[in-house]
């Protein structure tokens, strides 16, 4: 299955005014893999996610997903094609309940329309129940079902991150893109999260994840891409990346610490 890649991003470029946030970045990943995207602060990782998920339009480059080009600048079309994401600075529907947040994620895969809502047709009621059941199932999967009726904003930080994952999973994605899902978690929570991500991969959803904790990523990912100053400086298995001189330099900042 690894023969044809699920996602192929080629020579993505994006700049903000004079700032080159991404330059010729290519990345491809296969089904049933966990891929890490790492790099120092401001390297362009989040910007890459935003381009990938249609929030920004790239200035250069193309993205193919599951064999067809991905529309740029249309987040909802990207989600429809099967890429779901989370956000670095958590973006939940904070005043809705935990369960409702996940139910919103089911919107894409359900059909009930205006008339069904106004006249409460049998089909609509059935679908609504199915949405609810599936949402609850996902909450159980990520381990926060006990908080289903709470308002999302009242959850702890770690639970909010888990909720974002459940909400993304609700769209039945083929690729789950996570922007620093482990930020602010302790070692125990990280370990549990790692297990969860492996489970997701084994069920057939590819995972692309941004992370700063290099050791954790190395243990978890099948392949890793490293960005620095908007450019891809390395790509390979964790072992290959670990020994790459440019990566070591970027992380330790040798060249810069000498001049500074």
């Amino acid at each position: 299955m690894d023969e044809y890649p699920l996602l192929v991003a080629e020579r993505i470029g994006k700049h903000f005014g004079g700032l080159r946030a991404l330059q010729g970045v290519s990345l491809s990943l296969g089904e049933k893999t966990i891929t890490g995207l790492i790099g120092p602060n401001g390297a362009g990782k989040t910007t890459f996610f935003n381009v990938l998920t249609g929030i920004y339009k790239p200035d250069e480059g193309t993205v193919h997903f599951a064999g067809a080009p991905l529309p740029s600048g249309k987040p909802h079309r990207v989600a429809e094609r099967g890429i779901a994401r989370t956000f670095q600075n958590i973006r939940l529907f904070s005043q809705m309940t935990v369960l409702e947040n996940v139910m919103v994620g089911r919107h894409l895969r359900t059909r009930a329309g205006l008339l069904g809502a106004l006249f409460k047709t049998a089909g609509t009621l059935r679908e609504e129940q199915a949405i609810r059941d599936r949402a609850f199932q996902l909450l159980e999967f990520v381990g926060i079902a006990a908080h289903a009726t709470r308002v999302a904003a009242t959850l702890s930080y770690g639970d909010q991150r888990r909720l974002e994952i459940a909400r993304a999973l609700a769209t039945d994605p083929r690729l789950l893109a996570l922007d620093e899902p482990a930020a602010g978690m302790n070692a125990m929570e990280r370990k549990r999260l790692g297990g969860l991500l492996e489970q997701i991969r084994n069920m057939g959803t590819a995972v692309l994840l941004i992370e700063h904790d290099v050791r954790w990523v190395m243990g978890l990912c099948d392949r890793i891409t490293v960005l620095d100053h908007g450019e891809r400086i390395a790509e390979g298995t964790p072992r290959e990346v670990q020994t790459d001189l440019r990566v070591i330099e970027a992380y330790l900042g040798t060249s810069r610490s000498v001049t500074a």
Partner: peptide
């Protein structure tokens, strides 16, 4: 009332709360 409690009403609420997140969940805002 029925609209508010429906799939569509939920989608409206999501857009109201965070439009970017809503679009990323596949809502045609």
């Amino acid at each position: 009332h029925r609209l508010e409690r429906s799939r569509i009403g939920r989608a409206w609420a999501a857009i109201r709360e965070d439009e970017v997140a809503a679009a990323s969940m596949g809502l045609n805002t």
